[in-house]
């Protein structure tokens, strides 16, 4: 499958602070790729570098396997942090500038503004827009030229619940057309709802990457309880196939490897005269996985 973006060993420092540490990542055509990490983890820095507004200290990146040279960004629709437009121009005029930069001649500006629900305010100056309207105009701007690839950086930042729902539905609508999307977010729910793939980053380092399904399904956990919790905890810690044994209120939770079945855990505990009063199998949610991955690093 065609590589849309290939990042190799990207590093970036701001003075003594390492924002990115040898980051490598590939994004392929058609992926809806979530870039997940806490605030300050290096997501925006990564996007800034691959969009040409920040310089890297080392490493490199390549868009579209080098097909379009230095004008590759004309084929990418981006919303990076806050929406940036000429405050004294209206929506039509601002989108006209974007279309001119992208050398895009066949845009139906009216239709795009309709999709983002801004048609009624198209003649108003950008400076009069609310944050949600500005964000929607930024998405409209990203849609100019009907790009194959979209980059969204915290697209729902600062929006009210209605605005968040609107932006998400627009992104889902774009994703449903088969476009490649690279979306940075610290909101797990957002990534879980929108993305097919996810990369987790913390302190500039890539901690994990894979499909959302892989991360969600491959690492189930069990929660157990017995009369003698001390004995139960010791037994679990010594049992092969279990990881990350920890107390969770009056339960004990642990990760369970794919080749270990919960009933096998129960059987082995019974062999040690530990009778379980409670056993539940739980698929880890992305949030828990995210916390587990980021806390372990």
């Amino acid at each position: 499958m065609e590589k849309i973006l290939s990042i190799q060993n990207l590093s970036k420092k701001y003075g003594n602070i390492t924002a990115l540490d040898n980051l490598s990542l590939d994004i392929h055509r058609g992926q809806v790729f979530g870039f997940l990490g806490p605030n300050g983890s290096g997501k925006t820095t990564t996007l800034g570098i691959v969009l040409g507004i920040l310089g890297a200290n080392s490493g490199g990146y390549e868009w579209f396997e080098g097909k379009y040279g230095e004008y590759h960004r004309r084929r990418i629709g981006s919303l990076l942090e806050t929406p940036n437009f000429y405050a004294y121009l209206n929506a039509d005029q601002n989108l006209d500038i974007v279309a001119h930069i992208k050398k895009s001649k066949n845009d139906n500006i009216e239709e795009i503004l309709d999709i983002v629900n801004l048609k009624h305010r198209r003649k108003s100056k950008f400076s009069t827009y609310s944050l949600g309207m500005k964000q929607r105009l930024a998405i409209a701007s990203a849609m100019i030229g009907d790009p194959d690839v979209y980059i969204f950086d915290e697209p729902t930042n600062g929006l009210d619940p209605e605005g968040i729902a609107e932006i998400r539905s627009i992104i889902l609508r774009i994703a449903s057309t088969g476009k490649t999307i690279f979306m940075a977010s610290h909101i797990l729910d957002e990534v879980e709802k929108v993305c097919s793939d996810v990369a987790i980053i913390k302190n500039g380092k890539l901690l994990a990457t894979g499909t959302v399904g892989h991360i969600l399904n491959d690492i189930p956990t069990i929660q157990v309880k017995a009369t003698d919790m001390m004995a139960l905890e010791n037994a679990l810690k010594n049992m092969e196939g279990l990881t990350d044994v920890r107390r969770l209120g009056d339960l004990i939770e642990c990760g369970i490897s794919p080749n270990m079945k919960p009933e096998e855990v129960n059987r082995r505990l019974q062999q040690q005269n530990i009778v379980l009063g409670h056993l539940t199998v739980k698929k880890k949610r992305l949030e828990e996985e995210f916390l587990a991955i980021t806390n372990n690093n």
């Binding site: 960004r73 990418i76 806050t82 940036n84 437009f85 000429y86 930069i101 992208k102």
Partner: peptide, 19 residues
């Protein structure tokens, strides 16, 4: 300065203009 204060220099580059 307009391009800096509106951050449109950055946006122009993101949209596809080269520096």
């Amino acid at each position: 300065t307009n391009e800096h204060s509106y951050k449109t220099f950055r946006q122009n580059i993101i949209s596809g203009l080269t520096r």
